[in-house]
Computed example of a mutant assay.
Amino acid sequence: MSDTQASSSPAPSASQTGKKALAWAHTARFLTTASRLDQLPAIELPEIAFVGRSNAGKSTAINTLTQQRQLAFASKTPGRTQHINLFELGPKGAPDAVFADLPGYGYAAVERAAKLRWQEVMAQYLEVRRSLSGVVLLVDSRHGLKELDHQLLRFVAPRVGSGQVRLLVVLTKADKLNRKEANEALRGAGAALGEFVTDEADIGITLFSALKKTGLEDLATTLYDWAHPEAPPGAAED
């Protein structure tokens, strides 16, 4: 082996990068829960929020991403989980990021007062939470973005447009779609996003299936890169 070969390292393959990002996601562990914004601890780490309608499969996606069956609470009655739950990631004693699981919204059986209260809490969180660095909006790929999703985008659009916050729309339950329907879902989501954010904003759209693990490594890699902006693109720490 020549000196040149010995001193250079090959770039990690997409599979290696995805596996390392998944290993990082697997370190997620419960930190705290809060029913109001002022109950959340001040955090200096990058915070990535997961948001979506109550039937979008948000808890299932988080559990699939972290490879933990019950990390995120998935109620049999959508809309019942009304707390912000924080999970820290990275080495124990030296975490490097936080996931924030926000309550699902839009379930019809939830009382109007509760809906309005959580709408206000989520709006405040998305608009003022200082540690927020990324938002993952989960949308049922079969139905596309609805009015409440548009409303949420309006809350966070100024911070996304200014580069403070990154945005990823995850189209869940992609295993229910054929190829044509999947392409239509991607186009529809892109058109909807165009109404709220500029072309320069850091946004993405991806198909995801918890059942078939479609898009899982891509999702993990994206979130790892968000949490480690100092690392080379697509790279994960050993």
Rank of each mutant, 00 (worst) to 15 (best):
A6D: 12
S7W: 14
S9V: 12
P10N: 06
P10I: 06
A11K: 15
P12F: 10
A14W: 14
S15F: 14
T17K: 15
G18P: 02
A21R: 13
L22Y: 07
H26S: 10
T27R: 09
A28E: 07
F30H: 13
T33F: 01
A34Y: 11
L37T: 05
D38L: 09
D38F: 13
L40S: 06
A42G: 01
P46I: 09
V51C: 13
S54N: 08
K58A: 02
T66K: 11
Q67F: 02
Q68P: 06
A72I: 08
F73M: 07
G79K: 12
N85W: 03
L102A: 11
P103D: 02
G104S: 09
G104H: 09
Y105A: 00
Y105I: 01
Y107W: 13
A108F: 04
A108T: 09
R112G: 00
A113P: 01
W118K: 11
W118C: 05
Q119P: 02
E120K: 15
V128T: 15
V128K: 13
R129V: 05
R130L: 07
V135W: 09
D140I: 02
D140V: 01
L145Y: 06
K146P: 00
Q151F: 07
Q151S: 06
F155M: 08
F155E: 09
V156G: 03
A157S: 15
A157K: 10
R159W: 08
G163W: 11
R166G: 14
V169C: 13
V170A: 14
K173Y: 04
N178H: 11
R179E: 08
A185D: 02
G188T: 03
E195M: 14
A201M: 10
A201W: 14
G204S: 12
T206R: 12
T206P: 01
F208D: 03
K212V: 00
D218F: 11
A220C: 12
T222I: 12
T222P: 00
P229M: 08
A236E: 07
